[in-house]
């Protein structure tokens, strides 16, 4: 028996909107720790990792570890039927091949349930060890989204370089080149508007911009985004989910042949 009641149901709606274009089918894993997902895109270039900790749910019952295969587009369709202020409850019986999403309006005057068929999803789970990163950049998530969108109108790849000067995003294409430099800036009114560059070593890596643009669909989840870079590792783009966990995107770099 599984029963997860999420008062801030909009979080789950936002999570699905953020990942449904990158990943088609995925297994949601439910354990005492929380509700999680790990999935790669079809080309195995990017990986999504979601964690919603059990403590973040108003009610969390998970009698045994369970993995539920879902088509994310279909799940998003169902969650779109929930209001932004609705409480969302996920329910599944042991051995059932369906999951039920129950939506309650804040005033309890409208209660809906949507039952979705589960599916077998063949997925490879990767072990991601803790790593020391050469550089970690924290910046407003809207600013990062803006940069990715702007650069993708010029080129297909972005070079992200972190030096003591700050972080530089560069691209080039048929029509020309573009460079955006963000310097550390902590003298802001609100902490979420700050740009913080922590650098242990300078690092410069090249990535496909279209993946970054897909990751920025996580922007509504958090005011800030954290970008962790190391020369021998995929970049990690992380959106914290307040009080509950995180949505992380990992992207393998491009290298010169």
């Amino acid at each position: 028996m599984l029963e997860l009641r999420l008062v801030q149901g909009s979080l789950l709606k936002k999570v699905l909107e953020a990942i449904k274009d990158l990943v088609t089918d995925a297994n949601f894993d439910c354990s005492a720790t929380g509700f999680s997902l790990q999935a790669m895109d079809s080309s195995h270039v990017a990986l999504v990792s979601l964690l919603l900790r059990s403590e973040g749910f108003e009610h969390y019952r998970c009698d045994r570890n369970i993995s539920m295969g879902m088509n994310l587009n279909n799940m998003a369709k169902m969650l779109k039927c929930a209001g932004n202020d609705d409480i969302i409850t996920l329910k599944a019986d042991d051995g059932s091949d369906t999951v039920t999403f129950m939506f309650e309006s804040p005033t309890q005057d409208k209660i809906s349930d949507f039952e979705m068929k589960l599916m077998d999803v063949d997925s490879e789970h990767l072990g991601i060890p803790e790593a020391e990163y050469h550089a970690i950049v924290r910046m407003p998530s809207t600013e990062f989204a803006r940069i990715c969108k702007d650069l993708s109108s010029i080129g297909d790849t972005v070079v992200i370089s972190v030096t003591k000067e700050g972080v530089k995003f560069s691209t080039s294409g048929d029509i020309g080149t573009a460079n955006v430099v963000c310097r550390q800036n902590t003298t802001v009114d609100k902490p979420e508007d700050a740009t913080i560059v922590e650098m242990n070593e300078p690092v410069s890596l090249t990535f496909a911009l279209r993946y970054f643009n897909s990751f920025t669909k996580g922007t509504p989840l958090s005011n800030t985004v954290t970008i962790s870079l190391s020369s021998e590792l995929p970049v990690v783009v992380e959106y914290k989910i307040a009080e509950m966990g995180h949505l992380r995107f990992y992207l393998a770099p491009k290298i010169e042949e």
Partner: peptide, 14 residues
């Protein structure tokens, strides 16, 4: 010409 690496080249199946 640049080569796109795969995520599975970095992380192993668990």
């Amino acid at each position: 010409q640049s080569l796109q690496l795969s995520i599975t080249e970095f992380y192993r199946s668990s």
